[in-house]
Design a protein around this nucleic acid. Sequence first.
DNA 1: CATCTTTCTTGAATCAGTCAAGATCTCGCG
DNA 2: CGCGAGATCTTGACTGATTCAAGAAAGATG
Lengths: 145, 145
Amino acid sequence: MLGDMPRPDFQKQLRDVALRVTRPRLAVLEAVHAHPHADTESIIAAARALLPEVSHQAVYDSLHTLTGAGLVRSIKPAGSVARYETRTGDNHHHVVCRSCGEIADVDCAVGHVPCLTASDSHGFVIDEAEVIYWGLCPDCTSRPQ
Amino acid sequence: MLGDMPRPDFQKQLRDVALRVTRPRLAVLEAVHAHPHADTESIIAAARALLPEVSHQAVYDSLHTLTGAGLVRSIKPAGSVARYETRTGDNHHHVVCRSCGEIADVDCAVGHVPCLTASDSHGFVIDEAEVIYWGLCPDCTSRPQ
DNA sequence: CATCTTTCTTGAATCAGTCAAGATCTCGCG
DNA sequence: CGCGAGATCTTGACTGATTCAAGAAAGATG
């Protein structure tokens, strides 16, 4: 039914991390790729546009599995539900609008891993620094309330 | 009943930000101060140790109000419930253990506002940079699984 | 093609956090 | 020091995202 379609090679991505290639997972990958920073509900909707009968549970499970495998990344700004993106690997962060919740990608000013070296890490072995910038997006800036 | 006790002047803190001084708020401030990084449930328990009949709703409301006033700060690492602390004002961040969820304070290596200047903020007006370091705490490092 | 696992479907359950209405308490003023 | 207005608290029910569980279905391997 879906023999050959020239999208990003999601199948290969799955095989590369030793995950089974299933319709739900492909649909979820596709959905996340097409809607960066989308919340779970939107991803479920987008995935169903490709595969009408996916259960929400399969989407949740796929997102967890894919997140664990590093194919997608999840971000959960305070006060927001979980959101996902396929941009992984590069060290980028996010700006979140306090007013409307809009999210955008930003590369840190430093360019490289910035604050990864905390002065005193209390003995913790740090492997990732997550940065969230809070502020107002252009739209909300121009029309305050 | 509780005429004079030499604690931090929470009453003054409340008045300084034009908030009414109520028993629940004092209890919540005290609880958060005594248990940094505690989750809401712990704070409710700690507040009830001081004021047995506080409703969970009053605690939630107090936390929101105090957070809005800047007397307490809330942090919500992904996969964790909301946690609170009274350390506000200074620009410090947090390390979170991926394994046990333990949280510790850290000052950024740079010492000052570090990544506050994102290279390209997409027009967002940024007012705060929140940094969360992910890793393993000393305990979880020494005994892997 | 057959078998073994992993993954998906269905349906119910959990739990933090929120909403709403009325009672109570703080604060400012006379 | 007592009163009144308005903020704040209590009670109790509810929402909604996420998770759990058991059986059915589909992918991988030989």
